[in-house]
């Protein structure tokens, strides 16, 4: 089997006395989508921030291509090919598509003090990169990021990461704020990134979205990996139950109806 692009071995993360992550061990290979599922507060964001170089692990190892790595700042992780796309994708709403695509890596032409930003080239490359991902509605690199839909912004951010040679793509709840159609859009792009051989870590708490693209799933509960399984091993209900922390959906329904029953003093209707 191939060496995982990225691997976590027994990673702990504490903020002072607060232990947020416990003994997290995970692997993701090239061309594989790892879905990280978990309820709010489970530690998903903390985990990806640790991978992105925002936090340093308190204990444990991060390995890339089998070799241990350590990131002092987000830039280090980026230089190693780990790209993180945050929930709202483009973070420069008032910048043009071309300009924000190349922020910090602007293409220039000319010489010496007269080196100018190559707007035409930047726009062409940016527009082409997004269109290659199937977003044909984006055709003008001068448009502002803030004028794009949430899905288009996510797509642009993913296209950007791929363009700049990312090997690992981390997506923090990219579909959370999106409507059904937009979310489908983003999921298609996740598949496309995977097809291009990227290792994708896809964070979500929507089981449907995870099942649509995931090869490998990990459920995080209170900072620990509660389950780790591959596609086809568990049904949607089982995953949902896992995320709810062992309580099954059936338990939850029973709980709710008994609450209702005691609340208004009537016996719960047996048939609904």
């Amino acid at each position: 089997m191939t060496t995982p692009v990225l691997e976590l071995r027994s990673v702990d993360k504490s903020f002072g006395p607060i232990d947020v992550l416990h003994k997290i061990s995970l692997k993701v290979r090239a061309g594989e989508v790892l879905c990280l599922l978990g309820d709010n507060g489970a530690g998903k964001s903390t985990l990806i921030k640790t991978l992105a170089g925002v936090h340093k692990p308190t204990r444990g190892q991060i390995l890339m291509d089998g070799k241990e790595v350590s990131f002092d700042r987000p830039r280090d992780a980026q230089d190693m090919g780990i790209a993180t796309v945050h929930q709202f994708g483009g973070t420069f709403p008032l910048m043009s598509i071309g300009r924000s695509f190349f922020v910090g890596a602007e293409p220039t032409k000319g010489w010496g003090p007269f080196k100018i930003y190559d707007r035409k080239k930047a726009n062409e490359i940016a527009v082409k990169a997004v269109q290659d991902f199937g977003i044909t509605r984006v055709d003008d690199g001068d448009r502002l990021i803030g004028g794009l839909s949430g899905g288009e912004r996510q797509s642009l951010a993913i296209a950007r990461a791929v363009h700049f040679g990312a090997r690992v793509l981390i997506l923090d709840e990219p579909t959370a704020a999106l409507g059904v159609k937009q979310a489908a859009h983003v999921l298609r792009i996740v598949k496309e990134a995977q097809r291009r051989g990227l290792a994708v870590i896809f964070i979500t708490h929507q089981v449907m979205h995870a099942m649509a693209v995931g090869d490998h799933f990990a459920v995080l509960i209170r900072g620990a990996v509660a389950a780790d399984f591959v596609k086809g091993q568990k049904s949607r209900e089982e995953i949902t139950d896992l995320m709810a922390g062992g309580e099954t959906m059936a338990d939850l329904e029973a709980q709710i109806s008994s609450d209702l029953a005691t609340a208004d003093g009537h016996p719960s209707p047996a048939t609904l």
Binding site: M95, R99, S100, Y117
Partner: peptide
């Protein structure tokens, strides 16, 4: 408006 430095300011 015509060099990368401007882009940095906006970013």
């Amino acid at each position: 408006h015509y060099t990368k430095y401007g882009n940095w300011i906006f970013a």
